[in-house]
Amino acid sequence: MPDANDKIAPNLKWMAEFSTFDEAEQKLLIALSHQKYKWRTKDRLAAATGLTAEDLNKTLEELMRRNVVRTSISRNKNIIFGLRERVG
């Protein structure tokens, strides 16, 4: 079975500031660091992190406020979220 670490993009800047984030934010940042997917929907983020919808919303707000995460709109007209350092 492949190591879960293989699913994470390497050398991301947020990891250097790891301790400045709380646990929910850290989980969300890991989910947003998926090697293959730069843009994540809320449903998938919730599934990956196990956060409740309320906690997920608040954590996303906080990460957007800190300018670590940005949003966009997917082809399927969903709000999608990505690490600013990856998606620009």
Partner: peptide
């Protein structure tokens, strides 16, 4: 890259990170 990079909407379940 939003168009070029795969969004996770079409992801296979085994691709996804688990809690």
């Amino acid at each position: 890259d939003a168009e070029e990079e795969a969004e996770d909407e079409a992801a296979l379940p085994e691709d996804e990170l688990k809690p």
